[in-house]
Design a protein around this nucleic acid. Sequence first.
RNA 1: GCGGACGUGGCGGAAUCAGGCAGACGCGCUGGGUUUAGGUCCCAGUACCCACCAGGGUGUGGGGGUUCGAAUCCCCCCGUCCGCACCA
Length: 943
Amino acid sequence: MPGSVPGGDTPPHRYNAALAAEIEARWQARWAADGIYETPNPSGQLASDQGAGGPKLFIMDMFPYPSGSGLHVGHPLGYIATDVYVRFKRMAGFNVLYTMGFDAFGLPAEEHARQTGQHPRTNTEANIDNMRRQLDRLGLGHDKRRGVATTDVDYYRWTQWIFLQIFNSWFDPEAGRARPISELVDQFSSGARQAPDGRSFHGLSEAEQRELVDGHRLAYVADAPVNWCPALGTVLANEEVTNQGRSERGNHEVFKRPLKQWMMRITAYADRLLEDLDRLDWPESVKTMQRNWIGRSEGAFITFPAAGSLKEPSSDLEVFTTRPDTLFGTTYMVLAPEHPLVEVLTADAWPSGTPDYWTGGAATPSEAVAAYRARASEMSDADRSESKSGVFLGAMALVPFTDSRVPVFIADYVLMGYGTGAVMGVPGEDQRDREFAEAFGLPVVRTVQPPDDHPEDLAYTGDGPSINSRFLDGLDVEGSKALILERLEEAGLGRPTVNYRMRDWLFSRQRYWGEPIPIVHDEHGPVALPEDQLPVELPELVDWAPRALARDSEPEPPLGRVTEWVETDLDLGGGVRRYRRELNTMPQWAGSCWYYLRYLDPRNDGCLVDPDVERYWMADPEPEGVGGVDLYVGGVEHAVLHLLYARFWHKVLYDLGHVSGPEPFKRLVNQGYIQAYAFKDGRGIYVPADEVEGSLQAGFTHEGQPVTRELGKMGKSLKNSVTPDDMYASYGADTLRLYEMFMGPIDQDRPWETRSVIGSQRVLQRVWRNILDEETGELRVTDDGADDELLRLLHRTIDGVRSDMEGMRFNTAIAKLTELNNELTRRGSGAPRQVADAMVRMLAPLVPHFAEELWHLLHGDGAASVAQTGFPEADPALLVTDTVEVPVQVNGKVRGRVTLAADAGEEAAVSAALAEPNVAAHVGGRELRKQLYVPGRMIALVV
RNA sequence: GCGGACGUGGCGGAAUCAGGCAGACGCGCUGGGUUUAGGUCCCAGUACCCACCAGGGUGUGGGGGUUCGAAUCCCCCCGUCCGCACCA
């Protein structure tokens, strides 16, 4: 334990873990008592008598889930970074809103409840307390009054309120935005908008009217195939299912199951979610992930009349394609195995001449289809991609504008969830179709002339003149697309369309520990509760007994067990009636979709946020700006889910006039992960990393046995966690903060090395010693002014640290401060007061307790907090120098340095360079072919 | 396969935005000092090779190019990490 040796000869006033602990506790208590991190609102309950000074800034971390297992040193990395930045900005004169809440609904608390019988709220609150304790020790400058937990009834009341806003809205495609559902009802009612089948709205029954209107809502109930995860006892959003078809949480099996579920119409916002990405200051990787997730592609729907072996003559096939120009290269069609037309199209018997390998060896098409479907449902997605498979339906389809009849197959390379679940097979122009055609002996017709060097056996996807395409021949891809679409539209057989990979957001969960959905049901469907009946509080639920979570079980919302709660008598307008409550709860993402808004006005019980307060913090100063949180820091794992859902909700609230800008998060930074070495023994079992001995050269051992080293995520499973509590005990919170910020750029992953932490403590010890005598505790600062050289170094440091802090390059800011302090150390005497003063203020954002202690030693106990002083400003006059030392290159190699007047011209610079002996030796009297002087940077000579 | 990011000492990283002294700062390591000892703390050295020094040569994954000058800009290749992945 460095610095904590008892009874040694450690000087009594050395800065070590014990002293740090005392300083940190003392200042944290004082800061809390003085409320120095409380940020005023412009009006309302959190306004200040002094008013809100300086330009506003809203800085946020992604709020954590209060896990029961505690923190490791990787967790606070982002929090420390935002805290340093916030403190810097406050000292630079900004009114900064900075706080933290908890995303506290979720599965783990409910699982814990099932195991222990303890109410999830008890467990959740205990976890929050523990996490607060660990985080408070870091000295983060949060405005504690503003922290919220999504599980607070006063909070989820507003989550439910937002749900009602969404439920009570529809997306008007002409206006391109959400509007109140009442305006849609008015349109139907007045006849301005026709019901789809041309009937008058007033001619519809109540049930029909409700169904029509409900079908337009942004939150709606749909009977759709959903991801049912029996092991978790709930359905999951597409976003929560991995590519392997398993649950992201826990890696459990997930099954497709048709169910009535709440959906959110996020697809209506697909284009706006895509377009506005261009206006955000976000990492390019995150924008790319969102673009890929939305998956916009322009193409066309084309109708292929079914031909032959028809049970129903009208069962035409509609496909989606991005390449309508290749229509005449269609030599077959494929439906997804689950496609609803499969039953209709499947022939009674194989047409004569059907090859055996088209039948899957079955006696009839129906048997082949049944067998293929059964096989496909058992195969994992990974197995599927191995090779192309499928079976013939015995049916044919007609290619538009031709007499060409092509066979119809089902195959699992066509997905029901994308486009129409049916494709036209064009093996000449699509490599997947090519592979299928080869497997099934289907003809290949090229419709675009490939270049001469294009391999014969590959599809050609590039541009070129159309061939074998009738009236398209000779046109390029672009021209062919335009003409074929024109002809298809004339013929009523096709139209341009935009297709998205993104689907609507599946919003309901069969869980207890989530926000109740504020809906009741009557015989016609869902009815919104009026706002004055919010919150709908979670009923107490005592029955935590686990249910059988068998593979073939049905989703069962736990709230259904609270029978006296389920049935409720309400007067929603037409007198008291009996309603049945909605039993599903919201997904964990709901609470995190809008918490940044509640930070602004956490105690307001009249609205979710006061409009005046919202505008102050969220409106963009630039007229073209998107507004929102000025800086949002969090892990890249939320690139799609949380950040997409929050943007969607924010846009709905924007359309309805509740917020002032279209985007919630103007600037996003992803902090890197802290990795740690993990060690495996000979059996491949991880051993506790802190018990391993040895080195890379000598080899690593655990209890005498050799172990192998690898780098991985810090955590329990790799037995390589290091906790902040360990670091507080060994070094103190300020050293931990300094080390984490010094390790590297904020957005980069980096390996944790406990043995390196000592370096950051040494830096602080040396600063301490330059200001204070370790033996006596007396100040060592001198009242002599700093000499010119030191003063210039100080101001260069201020200039550099300021711009590094501004750019969140804390590692280089720390390096510059270390250099300044090393210079003081080199000089040996005490630091001149003005230098000590500036250095302490520059350190204050990084090591707030340490700096506060020194600040008060320098200025007396009655002084204001260093956090409330200004950040030092560089004197421009001290940044320019009279003379500069410039390297001299001869033929591209540095051969010497000369000192020049700062304003020296090229001739003076070159003659000074030639006078330098080593330069002269390399020039060797030869004639200069070229000379140039980049003022202050470089003299280059060419001979 | 497609898309993105990246590649610098034994290690983390700096210089990359704007081409201009590569290796700031820290860890580790080596030597020395303090200390009864270990640890702590302090001082010096530390890219590689040659050299007593002065100095010279090589060097930023590899190859090529632009330039007086390239870690930085351009092209090709190799490698690592991340995301997507039969999306019609």
